[in-house]
Design a protein around this nucleic acid. Structure first.
Lengths: 141, 141
DNA sequence: CTCTCTGCAAAATTTTTGCACTGCT
DNA sequence: AGCAGTGCAAAAATTTTGCAGAGAG
């Protein structure tokens, strides 16, 4: 999670301009654990930035992702979700209510080695998704 | 991987009708390791089934997925990929050419436990995606 | 002042749906 | 024969793109 100042620095150093919209999109992601998609970001930012557009949301998350400042999640829904937490962690989605929660670092240190040996790929990254029923939905049932 | 006969049985037992299109979609998936998306399936089946439509492809993979006969992959591309191999395994995608390869079962036996303990979810399934450069693309570089 | 960025609208892409016709059982 | 399935076309949903005006450096 970066402060607005350090985000501004990263953008500038990478040749991108620092705009209120870019800071706002990042800040919205940094201040939530709900892993919103583009629509939710748009709806959340609209009140503060009435001119905010989907184009800007999508262009911004693309840049933030390129710069490694956010992660894009594909849980299998129609749309992508975004996460400002780029530290090593995984995600789990409730098959009942659809919420996505974080899973702290798993004991997977040897996996990259295993995968390299198994496939010959030069492994650069990984995304783990778990699916199940969240505690809240379990209690309702 | 089911034979056409056993697939027919599963469909019938589940109240679905056995149609040439359904058998063909499954067979196409069972006979490839390329994890095609809907468009590739459509293009592959078109010559044999000139009337094949995207609607049928999508409706069929939805049923096959419901029945647990195929798996849907979301690597982060625009479209979903489908895999008739439902045994426990993961996938790795080349960040250069986009191909998706299989990874045999990983040493992740304790992960579900770890996740349950960490999140309180009742874990039902998981999907692991690795990203990197495939041997072929490495050699070209 | 320049050049990137924003925001609108239109387009492209992927997936879903409605409905008449086909064909499985 | 009855009813689910197919296939067409249209619609929906998500994401991308073109371009004119706005704003950051």
């Amino acid at each position: 999670m970066l402060t607005s100042q350090s985000l501004a620095g990263v953008l500038r150093n990478s040749g991108f301009k620092v705009t209120p919209q870019r800071l706002a999109v990042y800040e919205a992601l940094a201040n939530t654990k709900s892993h919103p998609n583009a629509e939710l970001l748009y709806n959340e930012l609209r009140p503060k930035y009435p001119s905010m557009s989907f184009a800007t949301v999508y262009k911004t998350v693309e840049i933030l992702n390129e710069l490694g400042l956010i992660t894009v999640l594909n849980t299998g829904e129609g749309s992508s979700r975004y996460d400002a937490d780029v530290t090593e962690h995984s995600h789990i989605q409730c098959s009942v209510c659809g919420r996505v929660d974080d899973i702290g670092p798993l004991s997977v240190a040897k996996l990259d080695e295993e995968v390299t040996h198994d496939t010959g790929y030069e492994v650069q990254g990984q995304k783990f998704y778990f699916y199940g029923v969240c505690p809240a939905c379990k209690n309702k049932a």
